[in-house]
């Protein structure tokens, strides 16, 4: 692929129509994968011999937790791109990801609390994993609050990019917290260098749900990015042409 193509897709006008065509497919993929994942999780996967049925929270807790971290990393990558190449679309994607990331971080914390109560006997403990995930939630909220507080979009972009880049240090801390410190939270169920510590059918359900959440996050972020583009570029020629062609 030539570099000219990349420039074409980094223009908000091209991206706007391309994203518009892709969003329904990502929503559809998310819906289909959710149905399959929940079927595996509730019908095929057996009762856990230690935790009983409470473990079924895993099919939502782990995918949401993974995506909460992953989205922040993607935000930081867009922030770095935006600062390095000064591309409008990079910052728009960065801003578009934050609310979905915050929502999934909240889901991770909420489902974690509802899982912790019957398993550990506590809704919340100040252990390294839980605390660093809570900090991630505050980073998302701080990012959005900062961007909302600054009127000039270009200054809001730069300030937000700074939070995204500094805050990304927290992601490896969350991920490795269960190894670096003695935590109540269990270690990783899935890792690259050893066999998963769970039954294959449970693992399958969890991975399918992770893909479902991933597809949903892409659909939501693309949809939000399109609104941000319209909001910011409404004075430009291509928006005028686009809207007139539709009338």
């Amino acid at each position: 692929m030539s570099s000219a193509n990349w420039y074409k897709y980094s223009s908000p006008a091209t991206f706007y129509s391309l994203a518009g065509r892709m969003i329904p497919w990502f929503y559809a993929a998310a819906a289909v994968l959710s149905v399959i994942g929940l079927y595996i999780g509730f019908v095929l996967a057996p009762t856990d011999f230690q935790q009983g049925e409470s473990y079924r929270i895993i099919f939502i807790h782990v995918p949401a937790s993974w995506m909460s971290m992953f989205i922040y990393v993607v935000m930081a990558v867009w922030a770095a791109f935006g600062l390095a190449f000064n591309t409008r679309l990079s910052f728009m994607m960065m801003s578009a990801l934050a609310p979905t990331g915050a929502m999934l971080t909240f889901v991770a914390l909420w489902t974690g609390a509802l899982w912790g109560k019957p398993t550990w006997g506590a809704w919340w403990v100040w252990d390294a994993r839980l605390t660093s995930e809570l900090i991630l939630f505050f980073l998302y909220i701080g990012f959005m609050a900062l961007q909302a507080a600054i009127d000039d979009p270009r200054r809001a972009d730069r300030a937000g990019a700074l939070i995204a880049l500094v805050g990304v240090i927290n992601v490896p801390i969350i991920y490795f917290s269960v190894r670096w410190w003695n935590t109540l939270h269990q270690g990783a169920s899935v890792s690259v260098n050893k066999a998963p510590s769970m039954a294959t059918i449970m693992l399958t359900g969890m991975l399918v749900m992770a893909f479902a959440v991933w597809m949903y996050a892409i659909a939501a972020a693309l949809s939000r990015a399109r609104s941000i583009i319209l909001e910011r570029e409404r004075n430009s020629q291509w928006v005028a042409q686009l809207l007139e062609s539709k009338e």
């Binding site: 009762t47 409470s54 939502i60 909420w110 489902t111 509802l114």
Partner: peptide, 14 residues
């Protein structure tokens, strides 16, 4: 299995 509140509380809020 007695965990209805926790399991459905997780799924409903999500």
């Amino acid at each position: 299995g007695g965990y209805g509140l926790y399991v459905w509380g997780s799924y409903a809020v999500t």
